[in-house]
Design a protein around this nucleic acid. Structure first.
Lengths: 340, 340
DNA sequence: CGGTAGCTTGTTGACGTCAACATGTCTAGA
DNA sequence: TCTAGACATGTTGACGTCAACAAGCTACCG
């Protein structure tokens, strides 16, 4: 695409200074709310600023100060439910801390080829980076994170040497599985997320261990790709199997697809089959039937990611203690004791 | 919150130049892929860059060039379905065009007090701005958009003097209403969005006009706030009224709440009541029953917003012809002819 | 009345990059 | 052999801001 031609520049400190009849430095002092400026002078400068429509040039400031006061945010799938919420929280927290957010979306050009953010990161004006993508995407992207650039990883595997902030997937999956067992179900089936997702594998492993620690049979895992469509397709197998009385779906969207499959097979929920989801997206309370699910606190995850990054920015020390945000089980109408 | 102390600066062109034994200008030429550099020299410079871990300083570039190659994006509610998708598309389109995205979230501090983006915009390093919030929020925010800053407005009222890009709400609402009438329903009820939303009022007006132009009775409008919860609460009234045989909900989330209310009242869908939504979020196909809805092309909206902004950036001419992106009716199982 | 402390204001230079111009080197053709 | 032109490389300065230092002024003290 075309590159824009140069635009005429806006008014600078010098323009304001000329109009107000003072030096640039005085204007700078006023602009930065420094003390030691005569009230009259300040008013004159302020008036001049308003007249010429002055606004400080961020680039010049960043150059001078050696800081951009901006955080890069590398995301792959912007529109997945969790990322959206986390992004929201990151935006809020960063803004509150006086940092801007620089979105660095990974372009999924053509076929799985992940490029974009990392090459662009090279020249992005950011002080640090928060990475909000799954591990395998990070691998595919031929990461070449510049040395010395502070980084915080959200929701990913632990095999990078960066601070990590994430939901406590294991605890959540245990909550879900135990809830179903406690209701009296013999065992719990699992509609898992994609193999490539670290979050999915942690949920799966925890489900498995919970079953094992109670001496239950571990049924084969069915795998979806997080989408409601995959939940529906895979869910048809579960719906057709009369053995199945309890299912833990790795997210709410797949749980929704599963509910549909069960409805189509005329299996009563929770009479014949109980279902638990993961996420607690707003709409889960209005699924039919309302979904019992594991609530994630994306807001906390985002907020703590920003906090961790700012600590790194300020101290240049890594706090490699991973931050784990606990979940909460929300019980609704989709779960009940097994019939008979 | 604390402000970070100064960080040591990264290596600059000068460092690379020293190491490679050339002038800074030559390094600059290599960095910018300019021709007229000896192959050997280029290699030497590239090696030096790699060694010191050079990456160009965005701030210095921006200062020099008078351009930031960055677009500000003012958003209020990041996590609403439509905004999310639009944001995704904007990110992709902007990145493809070589622009970065600067997120400027509006902080909803305390009680409806909207601040943040606009004051910060003053000093943000952006070439132009895309506004992605509803009109009334814009009003509350005491806009003071700097003169001469190119702006494009998405999904808002027309009373600002900026180019507008939006979904063709009227066409979509007409599609939904006509579909229900064509099935043979006497009239169509409407579960509308909040008064303050311009999109909601356009959908509502179009629904009303479609009914009037066919000589049908216009039932009273019930109003929600876009959330599934509000759809459920308001929907209970609709579900309790045997007169109601067809409902057009102003978005899918409220339609979901309505479906739940209808299930609870044991009203068959679509046997007793037909429902149409608006948005076509991914999960709508897996609601129970799968939801007939009006598909919005958020991707196109986002892409065209970026295009419109870039035109403005390049030409400094406004193209005040609003861009209207058409919708598409997706017919699923939640609509059928009325019983009898 | 000299001295100094405190305050306001101004001057200078450097942050990193790159366009414009200047210089130097080599080749080809007259 | 001389000159024009192509090409590689270097030098200078300006983009806008602000810290550091310098300078000027007033007030107050002994």
């Amino acid at each position: 695409m075309e590159v824009g031609k140069l635009r005429q520049r806006g008014p600078s400190i010098a323009d304001v200074a000329r109009l107000a009849g003072v030096s640039g430095q005085t204007v700078s002092r006023v602009a930065n709310d420094r003390p030691n400026v005569d009230a009259g002078t300040r008013d004159r400068v302020l008036a001049a600023m308003r007249e010429v429509g002055y606004r400080p040039n961020g680039a010049a400031r960043a150059l001078r100060n050696g800081q951009f006061r901006s955080i890069g945010l590398i995301v792959f799938e912007l529109s997945s439910f969790g990322n959206t919420r986390t992004l929201d929280a990151i935006g809020t927290a960063a803004t509150a801390a006086g940092y801007g957010i620089n979105l660095l979306p990974l372009l999924d050009a053509d076929q799985g080829k992940v490029t974009g953010a990392f090459s662009r990161l090279q020249e992005q004006a950011v002080d640090g980076v928060i990475i909000l993508i799954e591990a395998h995407q990070l691998d595919e992207a031929e990461i070449h994170l510049p040395e010395g650039l502070p980084v915080v990883v959200v929701d990913s595997s632990a095999h990078y040497d960066y601070p990590i902030v994430d939901t406590d997937q294991a605890q959540g999956a245990r909550l879900a599985t135990e809830h179903l067992l406690d209701l009296g179900h013999e065992t719990v089936w699992h509609l898992g997320g994609p193999e490539s997702s670290f979050a999915a594998s942690r949920r799966r492993r925890s489900w498995e261990q919970t079953l094992l620690s109670r001496g239950r049979v571990v049924p084969p895992v069915l795998v979806g790709d997080w989408s409601a469509t995959s939940g529906y397709e895979v869910g048809r197998q579960l719906a057709a199997d009369p053995e199945v009385t309890a299912v833990f779906a790795a997210n709410d969207a797949m749980a929704l697809g599963l509910l549909r499959a069960l409805h189509e097979e005329q299996r009563a929920i929770p009479g014949d089959v109980s279902v638990v989801g993961f996420d607690d997206q707003e709409s889960a309370a209005h699924f039919w039937p309302p979904l019992t699910t594991v609530r994630q606190f994306f807001g906390d995850v985002g907020r703590r990611a920003v906090e961790a990054l700012i600590v790194e920015l300020d101290s240049h020390e890594h706090h490699h203690q991973p931050v784990s945000v606990p979940t909460e089980l929300v019980i609704r109408a989709s779960t009940a004791p097994p019939r008979s």
